[in-house]
Design a protein around this nucleic acid. Structure first.
Lengths: 205, 205, 205, 205
DNA sequence: AATGAATGAGCCTTCATTCAT
DNA sequence: AATGAATGAAGGCTCATTCAT
C-alpha cells in the first residue's frame, strides 16, 4: 500500500480519470474542428478510441460534456482575470487587464491545442465558438458590464459599449490567432487603445 | 400570351422559378428560426409544400441553398452599400456609410422577417447567423479592408483594424436588434463614433 | 387509363397497400412467435424484407401496429359475433353463440396463419396473446358482462362469472388449437355445457 | 466459531446465501412491478445494491433467476397443495382443496408483496404473470390432470376439462386479487361450484 | 419536372456480459 | 468473491438521397 494514500490512485481510478480527460480533450477538439452543433457523441468517442457505450459512463450527453468544458474554461480563466484585475485601479487599467487576460488565455489555449496536433496534419480551421471559450467570453462580458455600471465610462450607453468591447476583443483575438507566433502584446495594445480612444470619443460627444 | 415576350417565361419556366424561390424563402425562414446547423432538408421542404424529391431538382443540398441565399443577400446588399459609398468622400463618411448600410439592411431584413410571422406566435428566438447575413457581413469586411488599404487609416495595422470594425459592427448590430423599435440611427452613431475615435487614438500613438 | 377508376390503384398505391399489409402480417407472426413484449420493430421489418426506415412510413411504433392489428381483429370479429347473437333469444343460446363465434374466429385465424407458413418449418409455438386476439377477447368479455347485467344469470356474481366464462373459453380454445383438424364443434359443446351447468349450479346455491 | 457445525455456514458461505437470496427477492419484486418481459438484469441488480458483475456469480441470466423463482414457488406451494389433498377423499373435495390452496397461495403472495411496498407509493399495477406464479399454476394443472386421469370425472374429455378448470381458477383468481381485502373463501366457493356443476353437466350428457 | 415511398447509413442510448483489479 | 468500468451488439428512430411512376 502506498504511503501517501491521498495522493495515490488505484489503477482503476487512474484510468477513470484518464478516460474522462480523454473524452473532454476529444470533445474540445471536435467542437473546435466541426463546430459544436455539428458534433455527434460518436464523433467524440471515435476520437478517444473508447467504445461507444463508455461515453455514457462519464457523461449523459453532448450537452453535459459541453457544460463540463464550459466550467473547466471558466475555472481556469477566472484566476487569471482576477489576478489582472487586482492591479487595476482605474477604468483604463481595468480594460487593459481584462483584454490582456482574455488574449493570454486564448493564446495559451490554442497553443496547447496546436501542440497536441500531429505536425503534418493539413490545415485545420479552428472554430472559435467552443463551449469553454463561450464561458470565458461570458465572464469577460460580465466583467465589463460590471465595470461600466461602476462608472468607468460615464455617459455612454452601457449595452452598446459592452457589446463593442466584446466585438473588438473577439475579432482582434481571432486575428491574433492567425499569426505565428501569437503576439498577445501587440494585439492587446491595439484593442486597448481602440477601446479607450473610442470611449473617450463617445464621452466627449 | 404575354405581350412583352422577352420578359415572359413559359409556364414551365415560371413554376420552375417559383419553386426555386419557394425553397429559398422557406430556407431563409427555417434558418432564422432553428439556426442553420439545426435545419434539415426536410424542414425546408416541409415548409414549401413541395415533395421531398423536388428539392433536388433545384439544389444539391442544404449547403447549396445556403450558398444561394448568401449570393442573394450579397446581391441585394451590394447596391445599398454602393450607393452609400458613392457619397463618401473621405474615411469618416465612408465608415458612416458602410455601417449605416449594414444596419439598415439588418433592420430591414429582420423587420420583414418579423412581419411575415403570425403576430400571436409565442416567443421566437431569432438566430442571427443566417447564410445571407454572413454574406452581407463579408461584403462589409471586404469593403473596410479595401478602404484601409487605400489609406483611410494610415499607420494602423489594417488586419486588426478591419477586425475591430467588424467586431463593433456585428455586436452593436445584434444589440440593436434586441430593442424595439429598431433604432438604426443611434446604433450607427454609436458604432461610427467608437470606430473613428478609436482609429484616431491608434493613429496618434 | 383504367375504365373503372374507383377500383383500380396505381402501381404506387398498390405497393403501398401491400407493404402495409406485409408489415401487419409480419407483426402478427412475430407477435405470435416471440410474444408481444419481446418483439422489436426490427424483428417486424426484418421479416418483411423492407428497409428499416420504411416501417416508419406506415406506423409510428410497435404499439401503433398492435393497435392496427387490434382494430383489425375487432373489425373482423364484430360481425361474426353480431350475427350469432342475432339468433340468440335466451341466455343459453347467447352463450353458445358467443363461444361459437369466438372459437370460429380463433380457428380461422390460426388456419390462415398456418397456411401462410412454409410446411417444413420446425414446430413453432404459437402464443395466444397477440393484440388482435386480445381485442376479440375483450369484445367477448364485454358481451358477456352485458348479458349478465341484463339478467341472463341472476343471482350470480357478475364479475366472477364473466371471468370464469372467459377463462373457460380462453383455455379450451387454446386446447382446441393444439389438435388437428380444429374441431370447433366439440370444443364449443364442451365449453358451453360447462358454463351453463356451472351457472345453474351457482344459481341453485 | 459456530457451535452447531452442521447447521452453520462460514461467513463466506453466509454472504453467498444472502446475496443469492437478495437477488431472488429483488427479482421477485421487479418482476411483479414491471412485468417479467420488461425487466432487465440491471433492474434486478440495482435493487440489490450489489455490483453488476456480482449477479453473474449467482445466476447466468434473467432466465436463470426466473427458473429459480419458479422452483422456489413450486417448493413453497407443494406442501400446501399436498396437505390439502391429503384430506381429499373424493373428486369434489379434491377440487376444493386444490383451488383453495391455489387461491390461498395467491393471496398470501400478493399480500406480502403489497406489505413490502411503502404505503404512500402512487398506484402500482401488479403484474400477475411472475415466474413463480406460473410454476404454482403449472402444479395445479398437473394435479388436476392427474386426478382426472384417476377417474375423478369419468366420461369427460380430460384435456378440455383440465383446461377449463385452469381457466376458471386463473381468471377468478385474478379477479379476487382486484378486491380488498382478498376474499379467498368467496372466490373458492365460486370457482369450485362452477367447476363441479360444470363437470356434472358434462357427465350427464 | 413532380411526386413521395424506399432506402440504408448513422445517430443516440441501453443493456448483457466480461474482466482486470 | 466483489467490484464496477469497458465493451459492443442491438434497438428505436431520423434523414439525405434516389428512383420508379
Amino acid at each position: 500500500m502506498p504511503q501517501i494514500a491521498y495522493l495515490s490512485l488505484g489503477k482503476r481510478e487512474q484510468t477513470k480519470v484518464q478516460n474522462r480527460q480523454a473524452i473532454l480533450d476529444a470533445a474540445r477538439e471536435v467542437f473546435g474542428e466541426l463546430g459544436y452543433d455539428n458534433v455527434t457523441v460518436r464523433d467524440i468517442v471515435r476520437r478517444t478510441g473508447l467504445a461507444a457505450g463508455t461515453f455514457y459512463n462519464y457523461f449523459d450527453s453532448k450537452e453535459a460534456v459541453a457544460a463540463a468544458l464550459s466550467a473547466d474554461g471558466a475555472r481556469r480563466f477566472a484566476p487569471i482575470l482576477k489576478a489582472q484585475r487586482a492591479q487595476a485601479t482605474d477604468w483604463e487599467s481595468f480594460v487593459r487587464a481584462a483584454i490582456a487576460a482574455y488574449f493570454a488565455f486564448l493564446a495559451d489555449e490554442h497553443q496547447s491545442w496546436l501542440a497536441r496536433r500531429p505536425p503534418d496534419e493539413p490545415h485545420l480551421h479552428i472554430q472559435g465558438e467552443t463551449p469553454e471559450m463561450q464561458a470565458v467570453f461570458a465572464e469577460v462580458r460580465d466583467c465589463i458590464v460590471d465595470e461600466i455600471a461602476r462608472g468607468g465610462a460615464q455617459g455612454v450607453e452601457p449595452d452598446f459599449l459592452a457589446a463593442a468591447c466584446i466585438g473588438v476583443a473577439r475579432e482582434v483575438g481571432d486575428r491574433m490567432l492567425m499569426r505565428r507566433p501569437f503576439d498577445t502584446k501587440t494585439a492587446t495594445n491595439f484593442a486597448v487603445t481602440m477601446i479607450l480612444s473610442g470611449v473617450n470619443g463617445l464621452r466627449d460627444k
